[in-house]
Design a protein around this nucleic acid. Structure first.
Lengths: 143, 143
DNA sequence: TTTGCTGCAAATGCTTTGCATGTAG
DNA sequence: CTACATGCAAAGCATTTGCAGCAAA
């Protein structure tokens, strides 16, 4: 149950938080912007203020429940933190996001950080390109 | 000479463009925000409007002369495009940026993109951590 | 009841744009 | 002379914050 995760994060169990967590966990879409979360909830008839969406997503991030990514540089997108780490491949045409993971890369990153005397906290690997899928001929706005 | 690069990019040779290109090529600092470029020029007694700095940096980026990075998510930084590709390691404490390159990682990225049917255009690999350098005890604002 | 949460509107910070003036070619 | 550049001020967008009213524990 989602309630448990909120409690573990030291957050009160409130309706907006449950709705947002539920949307991220069971919704159709992934890698949603705050605005997209706001809209998705509105479309479900669940009205939550945009400021609250921002606040809750930030709290979730601080609690480690979600991760924030900047694929485009001007708008953050959020995804539920998954048990298995992965990186991202973004299509420049349709903005679709693909996930992948690669142990060799992870390993090399650790070696590099080590050799430079760094204690690694986090990292982001974003690949940008064009997916050749037939369905990717038109631009889809994933705002 | 810098003039040649501007000409090759189809840009008129103007004073602001030369000053900015020169700053990036021969200045002390690297990975500068637009604001930082504006300030650095002002400190040199060279006044260039902030809007012009933004416009010129964007034109340089389009021409492939500079690269734009989002290390922090809310402010872009720019660096001269170098002949040798490299990725970045950012210290969470002092915001210092270190560069590195790793052929294995580059190679794996290509394999991943290939296997997912992607034509790769670009990528960003950012490592975040704490550098253990003695000089990194205080927070330095690299604004 | 107390502490923390929500919604709204206003504020913020980075970046872009409109427009009148200036200047490279 | 013409097309493109510049500077300023205003606008734009994503995100944050202040505050009064609400709700969870």
């Amino acid at each position: 149950m989602e309630e448990h995760q909120l409690k573990a994060a030291g957050l009160k169990i409130t309706s907006p938080r449950l709705k947002i967590l539920n949307l991220l966990a069971h919704g159709e879409l992934d890698h949603l912007s705050a605005e997209a979360v706001y809209q998705a909830l509105k479309d479900l008839g669940e009205d939550v203020g945009l400021a609250t969406v921002y606040r809750v997503l930030t709290q979730f991030e601080e609690a480690g429940l979600v991760e924030r990514h900047f694929f485009s540089g001007n708008q953050a997108v959020f995804e539920l933190t998954s048990d298995s780490h992965h990186d991202h491949l973004v299509c420049n045409q349709c903005n679709k996001v693909f996930e992948f993971s690669n142990d060799k890369i992870e390993q090399e990153q650790a070696i590099i950080a080590e050799s430079l005397g760094f204690v690694l906290n986090d990292h982001r690997l974003h690949l940008y390109g064009d997916c050749k899928n037939p369905q990717c001929t038109h631009k889809i706005q994933s705002k």
